[in-house]
């Protein structure tokens, strides 16, 4: 059963261009110039109940705009959205009872209150009787391990603790769909990992449908079974994580600083991107050669410094485009 049905969704923004100075101000008053920005262009997809789906794409790709239309924040220009049988632009309040939202860059908690008081406030927003709220807080407290700081004012919490509280606040009313917009932005890797596993556990426990956005592929690798990649307002790929991994995430970039020169020419599964004597940058195809084998070839004893990263999302997207052309 689909809980989210999006059909031919489009959104454009009209941006007023302004020149500086008095002359510019007057000019833009008399004859304003506009720039049309197509943020979302004709996208369609469906999400099943209990599914965890990720929207990824570079900054400004249109993923936030899409999520904001699905949650009723923005009005679509064209197309239709159906969330649990409701139209976000018409039944905003009704829908609000059914969904939860966390915006990584926009706090919704009162920072001078404790998480506990905040949760009670959210309970009141969703008209939940006090006794039920308290039970729910207890339950979520255990699931998200908030015990340590549930009675500390939010302003004294770390960013990671705050995000955990934000997520709990959005779950108080037992939403059927949870939207997470860049939930791990600005967090360090360890905390990121912790948040991911908590979200996973929550999804398992409550069977909540989760839609999340990120511009970090790593965010999603372990979390979602399905990925939608958006770029310039369009869906460039809607596929399972497994396929994506197999086709596009099988390459790692290894940058190494050596104290001896090595020759890796003609090694299978290794492409040399940059070779400046002691500084080396290679791409490892993990289908053909594991990263550890590649490092052995470099001889670990000679490595001064090493850095292993994923292929940037932008490169994956251009890869997908190339495949489409063929």
């Amino acid at each position: 059963m689909s809980v989210i049905k999006v059909k031919n969704l489009s959104k454009t923004f009209k941006v007023k261009l302004k020149e500086k100075g008095l002359k510019g101000s007057l000019k833009s008053l008399v004859k304003p110039k506009y720039k049309i920005i197509k943020a979302v262009k004709d996208i369609s997809f469906e999400v099943e109940k209990g599914e965890m789906i990720a929207f990824i794409g570079p900054n400004g790709a249109g993923k936030s705009t899409s999520i904001k239309m699905m949650t009723g924040i923005l009005f679509p220009d064209k197309g239709s959205i159906d969330i649990l049988g409701l139209d976000p632009s018409k039944d905003r309040k009704k829908l609000a009872y059914e969904i939860g939202c966390v915006f990584g860059q926009k706090e919704q908690l009162w920072t001078h209150l404790t998480p506990y008081d905040n949760f009670k406030f959210f309970g009141a927003i969703y008209d939940i009787p006090n006794s039920i709220v308290e039970k729910k807080i207890k339950e979520l407290n255990e699931l998200f391990e908030l015990d340590e700081f549930i009675n500390t004012p939010v302003r004294n919490l770390s960013l990671g603790q705050r995000i955990r509280c934000e997520i709990v606040a959005s779950l108080i009313h037992e939403p059927k769909v949870l939207f997470l917009d860049e939930p791990t932005i600005g967090l360090d890797p360890v905390v990121k990992e912790n948040i991911r596993s908590l979200i996973k556990r929550m999804n398992k426990e409550y069977k909540t449908t989760v839609v999340l956005t990120s511009h970090d592929v790593g965010d999603i690798e372990k979390l979602c079974k399905r990925v939608i990649i958006v770029n310039k307002g369009q869906i460039v790929l809607d596929d399972t994580m497994e396929n994506l991994k197999y086709h596009y995430l099988n390459k790692k970039i290894v940058e190494a600083k050596m104290n001896k020169e090595v020759n890796l020419d003609d090694e299978e599964g290794i492409t040399i991107l940059k070779d400046k004597g002691y500084n080396l940058k290679i791409e490892v195809d993990t289908k053909k050669k594991s990263v550890s084998d590649a490092i052995k070839l470099l001889n670990p004893d000679n490595i001064v410094d090493i850095n292993i990263t994923n292929i940037p999302l932008e490169d994956i997207i251009s890869d997908i485009y190339k495949d489409g052309d063929e």
Binding site: K68, T71, G72, I73, R92, K93, K94, A96, Y97, I99, C101, F103, K106, Q108, I125, Y126, D127
Partner: peptide, 12 residues
């Protein structure tokens, strides 16, 4: 500055 978002997702 887009500070209406949080209120728009609440049923109030």
């Amino acid at each position: 500055e887009g500070r209406l978002d949080n209120y728009l997702v609440q049923p109030k």
